[in-house]
Amino acid sequence: MENHQRMKAYWKKNLSYLLILLIIWFLASYGCGILFKGPLNQVQIGGFKLGFWFAQQGSIYIFVVLIFVYVRLMNKLDKEFDVDEKE
């Protein structure tokens, strides 16, 4: 039974990570690149209008970072709850 509780806690933690990461994922692409593109385009960084930059560059960089952050978080979580794969 205790094991069962622990597994539940692991899964809950996993879901909360997913939620946070996916919110960032959404904001970077659909938010900054599409929905708020108009106002963001008022800001200019170098030759880029900011909304345009998010749509064609920024969102992609953020996607890559998100996956690596996820991997780190999960590897730690697996160890913490002793569900990591042994060699």
Partner: peptide, 13 residues
């Protein structure tokens, strides 16, 4: 650009 890269976040997570 976003469509063909953002899907990998879904895949990985």
């Amino acid at each position: 650009l976003m469509g063909w890269t953002g899907g990998y976040v879904l895949l990985a997570l």
